[in-house]
Simulated assay, not measured.
Amino acid sequence: MIENTGTPISATEARVHFGEVLQRVAQGETLVVERGGRAVAVILSVEEYERLRKAPKQQEILDALWRPGQEIRSHLQGPISSREEVIRAMREERTLELGGS
């Protein structure tokens, strides 16, 4: 579902006033084209399109957030059951790095 961040415009209005539509979009406005009261397209500037195209994809963000947890799980060689367990494991690792036993 499209967020209501663009100005709604009917498909007929967009077709009839296409020059004006292009001017509005060039000035930074985003238009949501509706047909029968339903959003069917979005018209936006090339700059906004490029910004969106270069933005990290949702899956890339989720993967980046998931990766540290996976590394911690593999390091602990099993599932994490509690915060206390994670803290204990971190303390043990720090103690080993500092040369303790």
Results as ranks from 00 to 15, higher is better:
residue 75 H to M: 08
residue 30 T to F: 03
residue 5 T to E: 05
residue 97 E to Y: 07
residue 47 E to V: 12
residue 57 K to A: 00
residue 71 E to C: 11
residue 48 E to Y: 07
residue 67 R to H: 04
residue 74 S to Q: 14
residue 59 Q to P: 01
residue 35 R to D: 11
residue 12 T to E: 15
residue 63 D to T: 10
residue 64 A to Q: 09
residue 21 V to I: 14
residue 63 D to A: 08
residue 26 A to I: 09
residue 75 H to W: 08
residue 47 E to C: 03
residue 71 E to F: 02
residue 73 R to K: 14
residue 31 L to S: 10
residue 40 V to P: 04
residue 9 I to H: 00
residue 80 I to P: 01
residue 47 E to T: 10
residue 97 E to L: 14
residue 96 L to I: 13
residue 61 I to W: 00
residue 29 E to L: 03
residue 36 G to Y: 10
residue 7 T to N: 01
residue 46 V to A: 14
residue 43 I to K: 00
residue 69 G to V: 13
residue 54 K to G: 08
residue 11 A to V: 14
residue 29 E to A: 05
residue 10 S to M: 04
residue 95 T to H: 12
residue 14 A to W: 00
residue 80 I to Y: 00
residue 63 D to H: 06
residue 95 T to K: 11
residue 87 I to V: 15
residue 77 Q to C: 05
residue 54 K to Y: 01
residue 38 R to I: 13
residue 26 A to R: 13
residue 35 R to P: 06
residue 8 P to R: 04
residue 32 V to M: 10
residue 87 I to D: 03
residue 78 G to P: 05
residue 94 R to M: 15
residue 26 A to V: 07
residue 74 S to F: 12
residue 95 T to C: 09
residue 41 A to L: 12
residue 50 E to A: 15
residue 78 G to K: 04
residue 4 N to T: 12
residue 64 A to Y: 04
residue 35 R to W: 07
residue 9 I to K: 01
residue 67 R to N: 04
residue 52 L to K: 08
residue 97 E to K: 10
residue 80 I to K: 00
residue 101 S to Q: 06
residue 96 L to N: 13
residue 101 S to D: 09
residue 41 A to V: 02
residue 21 V to Y: 00
residue 24 R to N: 07
residue 22 L to T: 14
residue 29 E to H: 01
residue 72 I to P: 02
residue 55 A to S: 09
residue 85 E to K: 05
residue 68 P to S: 01
residue 34 E to M: 13
residue 94 R to P: 07
residue 23 Q to K: 12
residue 99 G to P: 10
residue 101 S to C: 01
residue 62 L to D: 15
residue 43 I to M: 08
residue 5 T to M: 04
residue 91 R to I: 14
residue 90 M to H: 09
residue 94 R to V: 13
residue 58 Q to W: 06
residue 34 E to R: 14
residue 54 K to V: 01
residue 94 R to Q: 15
residue 40 V to Q: 10
residue 93 E to A: 15
residue 11 A to K: 15
residue 57 K to Q: 05
residue 11 A to R: 15
residue 6 G to W: 02
residue 12 T to W: 10
residue 81 S to V: 12
residue 88 R to A: 14
residue 82 S to E: 05
residue 9 I to V: 15
residue 25 V to F: 02
residue 63 D to I: 13
residue 68 P to H: 04
residue 19 G to P: 02
residue 23 Q to E: 12
residue 53 R to S: 14
residue 101 S to R: 10
residue 51 R to A: 12
residue 96 L to M: 13
residue 66 W to Y: 02
residue 70 Q to I: 11
residue 79 P to T: 09
residue 59 Q to F: 04
residue 65 L to H: 02
residue 2 I to Q: 08
residue 7 T to E: 08
residue 17 H to P: 00
residue 4 N to G: 12
residue 90 M to I: 15
residue 18 F to R: 03
residue 101 S to W: 06
residue 4 N to I: 11
residue 50 E to C: 11
residue 66 W to K: 02
residue 63 D to S: 04
residue 83 R to N: 06
residue 48 E to L: 08
residue 59 Q to N: 06
